[in-house]
Design a protein around this nucleic acid. Structure first.
Lengths: 145, 145
DNA sequence: CGCCGCGAGTTGTACTCTGCAACCAGTACC
DNA sequence: GGTACTGGTTGCAGAGTACAACTCGCGGCG
């Protein structure tokens, strides 16, 4: 495979994944949209962060994040805390309920994805995961595709 | 890295990519949405197919595809041809204009993605592309995430 | 101190994408 | 012919999103 072809393939396959992921997320977990899930996941991973950080990480407009967070807060899954240093920012944290729901969804997602990856060798899994992280870690503006 | 962790990471990173891809697609190519681009790409790859096939491949509702195709046809990028065998189906084909636009977008996308992948060895590129294809080739229902 | 620029977040507005349900048209099988 | 199925369209409603305009708090500079 030529390098340009590989790049092309990476693009196309990532896009297929993206579309299918969005399409099926709602069906699998009606209680938590793909958006909400990823935001909660990020909060858990970072143990709290600002709305602006979420927007930057997912290349979303801050208004979009604001609305999503509002919904998550109304659902009792997320908590806003005032930053004592800077009264402009609100640090977001998972609530106990948020952590619980996130755990449930993660389990069922892992089952679905794990089924697809069941035949993969551990080495392939790790390399694949590594490639994805490496790709996403690119520091530039999120001009992925 | 444990296998479950790798699965988790794959999920999360794929999702990050998915979200960023959608976010930036519109900015890079205002003339062709991510959806339209992928549909056109699929048509080129398969050299024509039915609307239902597109819906199945991307896990989209047939109504959604119908509307997208209508838009693409209005834009003169896609052509519907009656199947002489079965008058229900309409086989979709790229027009010359569609092929041209698709080519332009592909070039600019490849430039953007290629920049990110510039430092990668050819071996890594090919392995990454292979993993993605392998993942998406899973035959089951598109319960990706 | 008071003004100005900046950064975080919210709200108004409009648009796209999407799915579901209801429907029409053509096909296949009895 | 009638019934069931398939491909596709249309009406409707809802989620996600961006952009612009706004508020509020922080920090520098005269």
């Amino acid at each position: 495979m030529e390098a340009a072809t590989a790049v092309e393939t990476i693009q196309r396959e990532m896009t297929v994944f993206a579309r299918r992921a969005r399409a099926s997320a709602g069906r699998l977990h009606p209680e938590l949209s793909l958006v909400s899930y990823t935001l909660l996941g990020h909060l858990e991973e970072r143990d709290g962060c600002r709305a602006t950080d979420l927007a930057a990480h997912y290349a979303l407009d801050k208004s979009t994040v604001s609305r999503q967070v509002t919904a998550l807060e109304r659902a009792g899954l997320v908590e806003r805390r005032q930053d004592p240093e800077d009264h402009r920012v609100q640090v977001l944290h998972l609530t106990a309920a948020g952590r619980r729901i996130l755990g449930q969804v993660t389990v069922s997602r892992r089952a679905a994805v794990g089924e697809r990856l069941a035949e993969w060798s551990r080495e392939d899994l790790e390399r694949f995961a590594g490639y994805l992280m490496r790709y996403n870690a690119w520091p530039g503006p999120a001009e992925d595709a």
